[in-house]
Nucleic acid binder design. Structure first.
Lengths: 227, 227, 227, 227
DNA sequence: GATGAATGAGGGTTCATTCAT
DNA sequence: TATGAATGAACCCTCATTCAT
């Protein structure tokens, strides 16, 4: 935060997406180029923020990595904080729909989970989304609007969808307890922990993510009991 | 990080704890006062680091909060990074022994867990230790030696002790599967998630920590099955 | 010195002198402006260093005197020490060639000296070079590379050239003794002393530099004997 | 100078030399101890100032080297600048009388010089006095009162004595020219240069001080001519 | 007197942000 | 629109000086 204590809360409308009416062709080309630059900056910013944290990341490095001049960043984003917030937005918005849609399935849980693991490993863990999640969790407390947006638009809806999933599983007789309706966090916590384990302890004790999640879902939805 | 890239790794011997032989009374009083100051600075530092993160925390604020002048910090700690590292050390070292000792119990798991929950809620969640854990997880990737220390001296030994606990539970016939020996992370992940939930989403959806953990242990060690 | 103990020894390539290919006019204008700024900073730095000494000179004052912001200095020089070293380099490099070339003359010594006096008075004593020399001598012991550079690239070559001059004078029969070949320092020491006298005692007892040097060379090369 | 811009000009009366009337014996012991401490501090200060220059020298190091606490320095000297000024005083005052007395000799110059060389080498060059002279010359411009004291009480009288020496040599017929009466600086400049050469270039090209001075006096007072 | 912990002004350096080109 | 030089507010750290013990 340092000198950004004022917390500008409005998310600036993505400048590069507003197409000024120009000559048709050139306008299109410009808009395209602008969108590419925007994307390049966001991409670079994610890597820098993920590597150094929000406060220690330098816009100089973001610019360098994005292949633009430092000033150019300010053509697309009002300031460092806005860049950060838009970054989170951009990365998460498309995912939410998919997640919720996925949670509306009526497939038996045990068939569903193996697919879920695969999707998580491929679409989250192996991608920039893992960094986004880490950033939200680590920087969230200093960015109230991010936490709020994240809860309202992501965590809340997803948990609700998961609760629906659990409820339907109960109705189908697949689950006997409503504990996962009350604490859907229990379903995802190993995934969260795995995300952090990775950057901290993997070099000391690697974690087999797929096996971990499989074991976890076996415990939750498996037919054998632990005890 | 900024100018702290060089990573000075030695943990300075706690100045305030070394009592130079002086006149008995005065020497003791001085040493006591020094220890108090040291503690006040560490305390203040924890709060500032927890609130702002390492990079954004200002030693000026630490000093103000500790009720000392800025320069005084440097009488006790070589620099910002050393202050941070000693903070982590100091808070964790005494806990580890307790945890490992606790894990050597031979009490039935279900009797043990309720006690475990209580200890965690009171001795970790309700204390500065929660902030320390959060700091390690959020800043650890930028402080390799902290991550290393934390793994070698805390996480590793504790997980090992937990594995032992699980093995003995299996031998006693309390557990049928060795999955928790292979993935002891599964036992603690809800607690980790709860720590982060607290700072991020509690104002939107409060989490009943005790109930969450109880539900979690019920799933792991309870006699009823979820499915 | 304080925190500059590490002695970064590389002399950064003069930023303002590297012209990136740009549009011809603008590129030239930019480069010119940069070179001017660089020069202004070096100029201001020399005055501040000369007035206060390296350690006590404040970059704040250098910036103010140069008419730039404090941060601007760091666009042109890596740090205070580098600024200092480049200052020395810049001022001396062009002079050496001239000196050595001058020493290769075959003019009779007595005709040469009057010219030498004039050049020294005008080109050294009356200019910033006097301050540079003073700085090298006063700060040199704390900046080993400056002393080394100064010896290798300035003092050594110049003394060698002077020795050559003396040798040729001996061959021509102008000098009978080789004492000035063995101790060329004797030729320049009054000039050195005059440089320091100036800043210290001139207000109490002004020194007529020209007359001093003339008297000195009369003693060395004159046909009358003192005793 | 840094924060010592105010230039306190009064030389504090040496505190340790003022004997407070106490019990006779103890008072004497105390006074002696005090004088020793004062001397130790001055000694240490000279070494630190000589090594780092006035501005960069740290009183902490002076105290450490003197074997006293930092605060103790302030019992004997008002502040850093006073310490520095008293240092210069103390070292020079005793020398001046000797020099002037020596210059009142009526011995033939050539017999005198060999003795002079010996004294300079032993009593100045090989001692802390060399550092004092270097300090005066390098720091003098920033300490007007030091330069003034040095001129009034040392340089001026000594030069005057030297002039007298030269005049008498002329009267005795040993010297034909009055050039050394007009420019007595010419007599000492090689010694000054040798002092600086030592710290700067000795590792590249050692200078045989005795031989240098002998050659110098041979030129000035020898019976052979250079040309 | 002597100590050395404590102070806090100040300096070097960084970096988000601006603006002339 | 894009650039990157320039700005200057902060921040970490140092060190002369003070003061309670």
């Amino acid at each position: 935060m340092a000198r950004n204590t004022k917390t500008k809360e409005t998310v600036s409308t993505a400048k590069g997406q507003v197409e000024k009416a120009g000559s048709l062709n050139e306008g299109g080309a410009r808009a395209k180029r602008a969108a590419e630059r925007r994307a390049a900056i966001l991409h670079a910013a994610l890597e820098e923020f993920a590597a150094s944290g929000y406060a220690a990341a330098r816009l100089d490095d973001v610019a360098k990595r994005a292949g633009v001049a430092k000033g150019t960043i300010y053509l697309y984003f009002a300031d460092k904080e806005t860049l950060f917030r838009e970054l989170i937005h951009m990365e998460l918005t498309p995912v939410v729909g998919v997640l919720i849609h996925a949670a509306q399935t009526d497939v038996p849980l045990r068939a569903f989970t193996s697919q879920l693991i695969e999707v998580f490993v491929r679409e989250v863990f192996g991608t920039r989304r893992r960094d986004v999640i880490r950033l939200i969790i680590t920087e969230g407390p200093r960015f109230p609007t991010i936490a709020e947006f994240y809860y309202r638009d992501v965590v809340g809806p997803v948990l609700e969808a998961v609760r629906g999933l659990m409820r339907r599983a109960i109705e189908r007789g697949e689950l006997k307890s409503d504990v996962l309706v009350r604490f859907p966090q229990l379903i995802v916590s190993p995934a969260i922990v795995a995300i952090f384990w990775n950057g901290l302890f993997d070099r000391f004790e690697p974690l087999d993510l797929r096996a971990l999640l499989q074991a976890h879902f076996d415990i939750l939805f498996g037919d054998g009991r632990l005890s």
